[in-house]
Write a protein that binds this DNA or RNA. Structure first.
Lengths: 362, 362
DNA sequence: TTGTAGGCGTTATCAA
DNA sequence: TTGATAACGCCTACAA
């Protein structure tokens, strides 16, 4: 990769370097409850109640003066609670495991932002792993998260067959799927089937009879359902889309480009292309540019998710907008209910079509 | 937000729901070393040595048969080591804290992917938080990570003045900066100053004398240095860029769009715009489209980072490529050396200019 | 090679 | 309201 195109500059003073060494060799021991107890003259248990005690509003278990004094001392010595110890004792870590296919996908990153934000609201921290959509790595991710004792998991990369979900049910660990669904596990997703239909209806209204689909990867429910919704509308309208115009692609721009190349090489080319995600759609646009085909005028393109970039393209991209942030947030709320023992249901969030210049009447 | 445009479908069977409730109410206790010990007939310490023992290659501390038996039992009961307990005992969590401004920024997400990948290679897991570039949130992020006992931190959002770094040095916690530098803390970044110069040299060669800069936010070293490099080249060439043509912007497309609007409203407009990151540059392209200005032909645009999308745009974006993945990976390697007590230096990774159609001779 | 014991920092329970 | 104590699961020095 780029690993050889690098320079190293020594930008630290000698003292700095020495200090680094010392800190590494003598890692400062953090102040503990015992430290605070000794300094404040109270017993550890009292200090614990004041500093980390279960925050039941009405019930105080130390006099105001005592509490204030203890808090003061804690602040002075820079006391930070040790989550490991607390977790060991309480049997819960307040950690949420998150498995995503890959973070550099804007859609997944945005869902993740929703998750993080909502989780913070419940006092939960997230532990994230990238599975790269690889079964083996996925399994390792789950194991790592388990061993770190996450209280629950949010899985954003489940293949339709469920993948490694049995491990979780075995362990009795609560989990929620996002972005993709699998079996009847609780999942928070966009209503992908409806979204696929919207895209098709839009293109049909514009008069496109010969449409093609960049269908993504076949183990992702969202890709499958978007594709299915799209195909169904065309079939219902009597314009069945032949197999050759349905192309499997990866979800990145490179995938979209390759898929489009393939479609354009065929004998009869489509007048419209529906890509199941925006990154692929942008790859299509790149390919069209190379072939000097003007998007919108000569060939319509529709994407999915409506990432912020879509609106800014030179030919703005028509896209089915999915509420990515909300999917993330909602998944946390659902998970909290699940952890609380409440029954939960899967949720489908409604998408909306945003028509722009990349799709136009035939 | 979108929170009301949602539908709920009950997609679970009755049985499923009941099962959920049960698992929530009676969270299955994980198998521990003791469990395995009892079942295998060996003592906990032996089991521990076999399963989680320090992996010194040559030194085995159990007979092959014993080890195999123990491992077998462990597999059967689904033993997963309790990282909390191990951490408490060992005083190290094998957790790496990562603070980023925001994950939905492709650049940061890509750096993060590099971090995760390299960390996994060392057996470390990452704990990520978004600081949203807000000082208060940033401080909270650091505290949360500290309380979760991370062994070290990677900070991707440090303001030039260092921000909350003093807390870390106080705690003696090893850390490395990525993406942005601050004071003389060890940092792995792109050579932003050089990159800024490259952009300027490119535009000057094309004959652009009236250039403008979308300078990003003033507390980010990368934005500052890219801008400075750019300005220096123009100054050295005798074409000083006036204050009015240097616009502060956020790092997203919206920021780029607003910045460009402002530049185009001025009396004398630039013939070229350098945006300190690609997202902003794409915002510029969107703005130009609205004003029916053709990028490249009428006004040149140069971005920074060369995210994968840049090459696929209808008018491909000229950009200074930074080795994002490598920055992430390198930061972990550096951190490991730091934790090992070795002296470390900051590293500047060299960028390269990728010229495309968005910049053309004047 | 295997067993024993003690403690990492916190919290829940019980007693004062 | 406060104090004492035990235990969460694991690791490691030491003894056998």
């Amino acid at each position: 990769m780029h690993s050889d195109d690098q320079q190293s500059h020594d930008q630290q003073s000698h003292d700095q370097r020495i200090q680094d060494q010392e800190t590494a060799n003598a890692p400062a021991r953090r102040a503990t409850l015992a430290t605070v107890a000794k300094l404040s003259g109270y017993h550890v248990s009292t200090v614990s109640r004041v500093l980390n005690g279960s925050a039941v509003p009405g019930v105080r278990s130390a006099s105001a003066a005592t509490a204030e004094h203890i808090r003061q001392v804690a602040r002075e010595v820079g006391y930070v609670p040790n989550a490991q110890a607390a977790a060991l004792r309480r049997q819960r870590t307040r950690l949420l495991g998150v498995v995503m296919a890959r973070m550099a996908d804007t859609v997944l990153a945005t869902i993740y932002e929703g998750i993080e934000r909502a989780a913070a609201g419940y006092g939960f921290q997230t532990l994230v792993t990238n599975s790269w959509d690889d079964p083996v790595t996925r399994r390792e991710c789950v194991d790592v998260l388990l061993s770190h004792g996450v209280d629950a998991m949010i899985l954003g990369d489940s293949p339709v067959d469920g993948g490694s979900l049995d491990v979780l049910t075995e362990h009795g660990l609560p989990f929620v799927l996002v972005n993709r669904r699998a079996a009847d596990h609780p999942a928070i997703t966009c209503d992908d089937y409806a979204g696929g239909r919207m895209a098709a209806e839009h293109l049909l209204e514009l008069g496109h009879r010969r449409a093609a689909v960049l269908a993504g990867l076949p183990y992702a429910s969202n890709a499958l359902e978007r594709t299915q919704g799209f195909l169904d509308v065309y079939r219902e309208a009597g314009h069945r889309i032949p197999r050759g115009r349905i192309v499997r692609t990866t979800f990145d721009t490179a995938g979209g480009r390759m898929g489009a190349e393939r479609l354009l090489r065929a004998r009869s080319t489509p007048t419209a292309i529906f890509a199941v995600n925006d990154a692929a759609a942008i790859g299509v646009l790149g390919c069209l540019r190379d072939h000097r085909i003007e998007p919108g005028r000569e060939l319509s393109v529709v994407g999915f998710n409506d990432i912020p970039l879509a609106a800014e393209l030179t030919v703005p991209l028509t896209s089915v907008r999915s509420p990515m942030q909300t999917i993330g947030e909602q998944s946390v709320h659902t998970l909290m209910r699940l952890m609380g023992g409440e029954p939960v249901q899967s949720t489908l969030l409604r998408p909306t079509l945003v028509a722009r210049a990349s799709s136009a009447p035939r």
